[in-house]
């Protein structure tokens, strides 16, 4: 399911990233790759603050929809 469906406070594992190549590379640098656990800290009209590897990242809705996670 897309990351946008994950409710705040829940943890999940990233399954795949459907973003275009350059964005994907950037996300890899930030620690967003398949197999990493991710949790949603807060949500604001689709935009998310997530926790990945201990860092807090702000993602907009568009990117969050392209990230697939499984619980």
């Amino acid at each position: 399911m897309p990351l946008t469906m994950l409710s705040p406070g829940k943890e999940a594992v990233i399954n795949a990233c459907r973003a275009k190549d350059s964005t994907k590379k950037f996300l890899e640098g930030l620690g967003i790759i398949p197999g990493v656990s991710i949790s949603v800290i807060s949500e604001m009209s689709g935009n998310l603050i997530v926790s990945v590897k201990g860092a807090r990242l702000a993602l907009n809705k568009g990117i969050a929809q392209q990230l697939l996670v499984k619980i």
């Binding site: 964005t23 930030l30 860092a55 807090r56 702000a58 993602l59 907009n60 990117i63």
Partner: peptide
């Protein structure tokens, strides 16, 4: 463009 930004503590 997509928005991804690290939030500092």
């Amino acid at each position: 463009a997509p928005f991804v930004m690290e939030l500092p503590p």
